[in-house]
Simulated scan of single mutants.
Amino acid sequence: MSVDFELMEPEELEELAVKRINEGKLKEGLKLTLRAARGYERGGKIKEAARLYRYLGYLVLEKTGDLGKARPPILKSAYLYIDLIDAEVSKPEVDVDVLDEYCSNVLEAFATLNDRKNLMKYAGEFAKIYEDLGNTYEDRDDVTMAIRTYESAHRYYSLMDDGESYKRLNEKLISLYGQLAESRLENGDVEGAAEAFYRLAGYILSIFGYDIHFMEMMDTAAKNFEKASKLSYSNGDLDGTTTNLLKAQYAYLLAKNPNRAKLIGINNARILHQVVSSYLAKSDNEKAAEKLMELTESLIGIGKLKEAIETYRSVLETESDLKFRVRVRLAVLKHHAATEGSEELLGDIATLEYHLNRGTHTKAFELAEKVMLREGLGEVLRMIHRAEGIYE
């Protein structure tokens, strides 16, 4: 019995397309995907159309390696996302999470197509959008959202090599993070203040490099994380204790205080073994995996790489998650940055943390792989790959 595709809704076409692709009928699946995307577009479902054109373009690129064939749907998706951005910023209240996704997809499309002219054009437009949003939030005294939007603008200005705007946003972020840290300390939020000091250190790095100014601020962050861990411990919160000890360990490492970092790491590893055992006894695999991941990071920080990789293998056996794969690479890179004192690497780490905090794990993962290879950490990366079941 023949199927009349013209009578099918785009949702049905998409479902059938996925089924055909999974059956290995790629050509038919691609045609159905295109029909579904066009159906969404005709029906005014622009977000779904943009998503599906994007999927189609990258699937063609993956399967054929032919950028020319992939170009039309990728380009189509980019311009649909630009329409969605225009609609989003016209709303009385902008959903920044949605805006982040749309802007990222547009720039990724032009980067994939090697279209530097449009990449720079839209990076500039998006930077201005985010800076305007930041100004609005700052006028409302919403420091948290002002920081978030200014950070996006800062990153786009960096992409454009717009030094003047980059510096302006850098100074603004230093001022706002300083305000946020002091405000949180006044309100007794030591952990929140520590996070603010940690972020503040990153923007100080952009101005002074890996020098005493950066290290002093990172040391301030470390001391506050350590204080937060003690407060958590006094309240019987071992989860909070271990999380803050881990953050203190790495902040001390980056502050060039390896002895304090090692002492904290050894102590934290001991506590984490207890916490993991407790969660496993309760069959709480999700929390056990999180604490096993923290143990992996802590062991990397004290230089016990082989033991860390074995622990990481246990993480993936408990719960496989892309964010864990990013975090193990990030821990290795942080340890390497602390021992090598590389300002360039610290910049890459800041970008990785930016993507990790915003849930764009795929981008963080791809960057982490590239940076590890660039930094001569290929053997460590192979150890991680083997733990993940990848043999080269």
Rank of each mutant, 00 (worst) to 15 (best):
M1E: 06
S2K: 07
V18Q: 14
N22S: 14
G29H: 09
T33V: 10
R35G: 00
R42F: 05
E48G: 05
A49L: 05
R51L: 03
L56W: 08
G57L: 07
L67T: 12
L67K: 13
I74D: 02
S77C: 03
A87Q: 13
S90E: 03
D95L: 02
E101W: 06
Y102E: 04
C103P: 02
F110D: 02
A111V: 04
N118V: 02
M120K: 12
M120C: 01
M120Y: 12
Y122E: 07
G124S: 01
G124L: 00
A127F: 01
E131N: 09
E131C: 04
E131Q: 07
D132F: 06
L133F: 04
T136R: 11
R140H: 01
D142L: 05
T149V: 14
H154L: 13
R155L: 00
Y166Q: 08
R168N: 14
K172A: 13
I174Y: 07
L176N: 03
S183M: 09
E186I: 03
A193P: 10
E195V: 14
A196V: 11
R199G: 06
Y203F: 15
Y203W: 14
Y203K: 10
S206V: 00
M218E: 14
S234V: 14
G236S: 12
T241E: 15
L246N: 15
Q249K: 15
Q249Y: 00
L254M: 13
K262V: 12
I266A: 04
A269T: 13
H273T: 06
V275T: 02
S283H: 13
N285K: 12
E286C: 08
K287H: 14
M293Y: 07
E297P: 11
K304N: 10
E310C: 01
L333A: 05
H335K: 15
G341N: 03
S342W: 11
L345R: 08
I349C: 08
T351H: 09
H355G: 05
T360W: 13
H361G: 03
V380I: 15
M383T: 03
H385C: 05
